[in-house]
Design a protein around this nucleic acid. Sequence first.
DNA 1: AACTGGTATTGACGGATCGTCGTTTTTTGA
DNA 2: TCAAAAAACGACGATCCGTCAATACCAGTT
Lengths: 242, 242
Amino acid sequence: MVQLTRKQREIQEREQLFVATGRRLLLERGYAGLTMDRIAEATEYSKGTVYQHFANKEDLLVAVLVGTCSTRRSLFERAAAFRGTPRDRMAAIGIAVEIFRAQHPDADAVEHLSREQSFREKATPETLLRLQASEQATLEICFGITRDGIAIGDLELAEEARISDITLGLWSLYQGTFAILDGMPTDELGFPDPLETMRQNAQRLLDAFDWKPLSTDTDLDAQRERILGEVFPEEREALEPS
Amino acid sequence: MVQLTRKQREIQEREQLFVATGRRLLLERGYAGLTMDRIAEATEYSKGTVYQHFANKEDLLVAVLVGTCSTRRSLFERAAAFRGTPRDRMAAIGIAVEIFRAQHPDADAVEHLSREQSFREKATPETLLRLQASEQATLEICFGITRDGIAIGDLELAEEARISDITLGLWSLYQGTFAILDGMPTDELGFPDPLETMRQNAQRLLDAFDWKPLSTDTDLDAQRERILGEVFPEEREALEPS
DNA sequence: AACTGGTATTGACGGATCGTCGTTTTTTGA
DNA sequence: TCAAAAAACGACGATCCGTCAATACCAGTT
């Protein structure tokens, strides 16, 4: 028993090592620079051993994604704990997304890759389930904030609207803008400040849901300042350069 | 001179053939099934000849994208010509996007792929420019509709808002929703009808810009019916199944 | 300590694909 | 008709994925 547990612990540690190395390679050399041989070499294990942990390259990449996704989730959790109105907290989520993107510029690209059909066909269902669970938990944070808004009375949904509609809208807005952002020369295409536009559009959408307090009754700059200062003091510098 | 032009015409025709074959392969066998060898074989040319037209695989794929992008643009042009208020015409653009996605399920995935940094590094700058020009023209259609709205007096932008903000918002909303849609099991994650939510969120966003006539003063079902009937009678069946 | 059965690890190998380049074929211009 | 230039060809080297037979390691037994 003890033997077995030690062995299993070793295996788990090694799996973490592989994932961490994968993430590092991804960051340093890009997706094309991430090879199974390279991971084997960098970890001083053989390729066969790597393949004992992951069915294939895609599987490993999804495992890397699970890690980054849980990183994002913890950012979300901190944002959700912000002391303010539910709408303030949702704004904090938005900032969390921005921070995450600033800290993991590669993650977004890989996330898009992983949405490929051919990709998901290759990865292990079990690994995909872990990813889905992590995504689910992340979304649940947003649903929770929305529910709080309703409970407090700041937000009232018309019949045809669902709680998830708000999250889907915001999520799309952010994901979509980021996708456009690093896929096009936005400047030349007529989008002078896409990030700022994105934030404003998010506010407009929430205003459209009549989620109080409306952005017109809020000092958004001060709000952003408070959130950055209270929730993300360490991370704010990652955001400033842009 | 005549010789040269004939030769050039042949070359252009062949290039079109390669691109068309690429698109077909992409549709039939997916991204993984698209190989340079396969294109050479299918067109009965040699691989070397294919490489005389395209610097590499990525370059060819971008060329395929240029084609699909221009297909989308013509859908947009038809939508923009709809006889109705500017806001009606913008709604028609939304339907055009839905139709395009229904008809080219692969295009979206490839579009995401092409946003990869490593991808764009490999493609020829010249091909990328053609893609950008096509995207630019597509966006310009949306900008034009927005300007019409302002000219007519249906829309008035607050100082901090730009014309491009509306297009960026809608574009993000649609792109983002689609990305989420084919990357996650939306049903299980708590999004019962993401497409319908997407349409509603688009309406909400435009309402937030106070673009008259507001969705609350519009029979959206009738509007959709009119657009489908008048602008996209042929394509509507592509949309019904979903 | 030696042995044995089973498990974990290894890296050489087959297969697929990209992109090149020397050779062959075709075209051009005289 | 012919020689030089241009185009087309496809075999080849290089890279990477995933496999698998051979090897090394380990636990428990004699």
